[in-house]
Design a binder for these strands. Structure first.
Lengths: 229, 229
DNA sequence: GCTACACTTCGGCGCGGACCGAAGCGTGGC
DNA sequence: GCCACGCTTCGGTCCGCGCCGAAGTGTAGC
């Protein structure tokens, strides 16, 4: 355990892992810039991360793309972020300094997070579509119909996967949002419908006006008006 | 994030945190033995863990008990263990040499302690009858009804006392049990019902067969079969 | 009072590892 | 063929921190 934690415990490696949290694959040079170190140093770090199976490389031409090795790794990093984000001063509610766009809606590895992710999950739970507890989740029969109507087929291929539906703790909202295969399918469908759009860089996600209407109509999700400067 | 992970990244601190994963509170010396370092080194580690709110100390006499600070911390450690591939619950190395009878059930000043005390308290908390945190406690409205049914009147005289309901750290189980005026009232009532009996000498307490049935029926307390020679 | 014990603080030692520059492979473009 | 570029490997420096022994503080028991 100490070995794994020590890998994350270095600031440069932590920056790299944080940058990979959106599930994308980044090149060694990009990760070096992200961590603020030279390519030589970054290469050493990536070698260690690869050796411990935290990230996996993909050679492509003269680039090497690195991505997080598994969902478990992403989940572990989220867990660390939750603890790291807690205020050190007890009793005082120190407001978290988080990019508002990121807090509003973002991807968490392969699924939705932020206010949007939490609100959507909350809606699904309150409507009895899914049940979440103790790190496990389940889709109800009515939930399957609702999801099917939305264009997410509950194929046996999906159902057979271990973690079809599971909760994930949101580090900015401190509430659970939906992860697992179902969470990934929801994100994909929302992108497909153009209800949300990935931002050019980073994990932030933008809700389109069609998405705002659709989320309200179909899921009863009331999103706060976006405050734009 | 790197700072938190770095704390877990040290082998000695990781051993300590792993030893605390079962929710018990251990002394500094016990944690030092667990980590295989001197008390001096352990003290430094525990100072850092406390400063970052990963563990919280509880001073009791000339001992200092340390426990994990929150559920989030336990969850984080679990996430790291999953990636590290270690078993979630490690074998306990520090075996406690305590008289089994005393450990099973005893009085702690004027209230119940030992397995019975912890189990009863745990039951009351999980049923939402009482809430314990940070050295203070509170009886919920539903808890008052439950206690009244059991024959413990929530008289204003009792309520007016400062410490009507408070947690107390159990030295044999290393978990909190119920103390305060309510804890004393519970002990008295259990004796009155002859669900428990004081032993002739010492603080040990014996559970009668009627008590075993009653505790199971009313509080859902499952007591392990007493192993008698 | 004294002693025993639990724990912390202080000072100093020593190892591990993060970092960089320079050089060494590959790949791709000209 | 050549050069440009991405990335890795190699040496060497240096800071951080884990570690301990010894001394100091506080509590419990006689």
């Amino acid at each position: 355990m100490a070995g794994i934690a020590a890998l994350v415990g270095d600031p440069a490696r932590a920056s790299m892992l944080a940058a990979l949290m959106d599930g994308r694959a980044l090149t060694a040079t990009e990760l070096a810039a992200e961590a603020g170190v030279t390519p030589a140093t970054a290469s050493g770090h990536l070698g260690k991360l690869t050796g411990s199976r935290l990230v996996t490389p993909t050679a492509q031409g003269r680039h090497r793309y690195y991505r997080l090795a598994s969902r478990e790794v992403a989940r572990m990093l989220e867990g660390i972020m939750v603890v790291a984000g807690e205020p050190l001063v007890r009793g005082r509610r120190t407001e978290l300094r988080i990019d508002p766009d990121l807090r509003f809606a973002r991807t968490c590895y392969d699924h939705l997070a932020g206010r949007l992710g939490v609100a959507l999950t909350s809606s699904l739970v309150s409507r009895g579509a899914v049940e979440l507890r103790d790190g496990a989740g389940q889709v109800t029969p009515s939930g399957e119909r609702l999801l099917a109507d939305f264009g997410i087929a509950s194929e046996s291929a999906l159902r057979s996967r271990r973690m079809y539906c599971r909760p994930c703790l949101d580090w900015s909202e401190r509430r659970t949002h939906l992860a697992g295969v179902l969470g990934a399918a929801l994100l994909e469908r929302l992108l497909e419908l153009r209800w949300i759009e990935r931002s050019a860089a980073g994990r932030a996600v933008k809700v389109t006006s069609a998405g705002r209407r659709g989320l309200q109509a179909r899921f009863g999700v009331e999103l706060p008006r976006e405050s734009r400067p």
